[in-house]
Simulated assay, not measured.
Amino acid sequence: MTISKDSSAPIFVVVGSTGGQGGSVVRAIQESSKPYRVRAITRDAAKPKAKELASLGCEVVEADISTPDGAKKAFEGADFAFAMTLTDFEVANPLDKEFADAKSQIDAAKAACAKTLIWSGATHIKDGSGGKNSIATFENKAAVTAYARSLGGLKIIDVQPGNFLSNYFTHMRPRKLEDGSFVMGMALDANTKIPLIDLEADYGKYVVAALEDGSLETVHAAPEYITPVQVAAGFAKATGKKVFFAPVPDEQLKAILTQTRGEILAVNMVAMFRAFREAGYYCGADLAPSNKMLSKPARKFDEMLAANPTGVAELFA
């Protein structure tokens, strides 16, 4: 079904509409059998991606959702909304900034009397691990979820994206060795179970399904758990190359990231990978209920690679 312009259709506000998560949500709305008017929020309506959204029938609204006036403009009249934030380690006090940006969106959605807010959150690792592990960025997003639910009168659905497939094409990409084989170095154990998602293709499916199904308050957006060894094997199968996994010690990861990205990010990343190894990305949550909602299954890893042959080939050139 196409995006509706009928004034009787509910307004669905999508933050981050020109990015990976928000763009995926817009595409999933477009594929829904139910009519929605889409208000696509962006900081720059002149972007090619913003113009593309307008051509699809979206109302493209330029707004800075980190400010009260911008958030009000974005969410005014909304029936449903998708809210998200990104952690910017380049600013002072990045977690405080991210929480404030999220709060701005939530308060505006509440003030607009929206029925449902879908929030791109994360698992509270400290609670889920009995205090043994903690990931500052995850706990921060979980605190946003708790704040939103404390308000009452606004239904909150926490749709937690899994580990992005794109990571394995960027900073976790295979590295070619002198003998022609490829190594995938990760600060994980061979048997660490990671929930992997092709964000742009599939994240929006979980968001729209969660809204339309309505049975889950927390959604784990990933089709399957996969280990680093299976990731390497999947690349090997897709390319015919020799690909193997090699664990990276925490100390080595911290040294590399401190030099290239700064100490704050480095400390958080080391804690994150340690938590993935010891507690699990979703602290062992069952993915079946979240995937049962989907009318069209999300791609599993082999299918993700098969859908991106050019990108895979470039990794192993």
Score class of each variant (00 low, 15 high):
residue 85 T to K: 04
residue 7 S to P: 15
residue 40 A to I: 13
residue 282 Y to Q: 02
residue 23 G to E: 02
residue 67 T to W: 09
residue 76 E to T: 09
residue 137 T to S: 14
residue 4 S to G: 13
residue 167 N to E: 05
residue 267 V to N: 13
residue 284 G to C: 15
residue 261 R to V: 08
residue 187 A to C: 11
residue 224 E to Y: 02
residue 184 M to N: 00
residue 19 G to I: 03
residue 169 F to C: 00
residue 304 M to S: 01
residue 274 R to E: 00
residue 301 F to S: 03
residue 166 S to N: 03
residue 171 H to Q: 15
residue 103 K to E: 06
residue 234 G to N: 04
residue 181 S to T: 07
residue 34 K to D: 15
residue 143 A to Q: 15
residue 127 D to I: 05
residue 10 P to M: 09
residue 251 E to F: 10
residue 58 C to G: 04
residue 77 G to R: 13
residue 313 A to L: 05
residue 205 K to Y: 12
residue 87 T to F: 15
residue 235 F to G: 05
residue 5 K to P: 14
residue 25 V to T: 05
residue 7 S to Y: 14
residue 46 A to L: 12
residue 87 T to V: 13
residue 233 A to Y: 03
residue 87 T to C: 15
residue 154 L to Y: 14
residue 309 P to G: 00
residue 122 A to Q: 03
residue 206 Y to Q: 05
residue 205 K to Q: 15
residue 296 K to M: 12
residue 88 D to Q: 08
residue 95 L to R: 03
residue 205 K to F: 09
residue 189 D to E: 13
residue 53 L to A: 02
residue 284 G to A: 11
residue 163 N to V: 03
residue 238 A to H: 03
residue 112 A to Q: 08
residue 233 A to P: 10
residue 2 T to V: 14
residue 22 G to H: 03
residue 128 G to S: 12
residue 275 A to V: 06
residue 20 G to F: 02
residue 216 L to F: 00
residue 254 K to M: 14
residue 291 N to F: 08
residue 255 A to D: 12
residue 129 S to C: 06
residue 72 K to S: 14
residue 35 P to R: 06
residue 223 P to V: 00
residue 286 D to E: 04
residue 209 A to I: 04
residue 252 Q to L: 15
residue 228 P to H: 04
residue 228 P to T: 05
residue 219 V to S: 02
residue 89 F to E: 01
residue 304 M to F: 11
residue 186 M to A: 07
residue 139 E to Y: 00
residue 223 P to E: 07
residue 120 S to Q: 00
residue 137 T to R: 10
residue 163 N to R: 07
residue 250 D to F: 01
residue 115 K to A: 07
residue 109 A to W: 05
residue 160 Q to C: 10
residue 164 F to R: 08
residue 294 L to V: 00
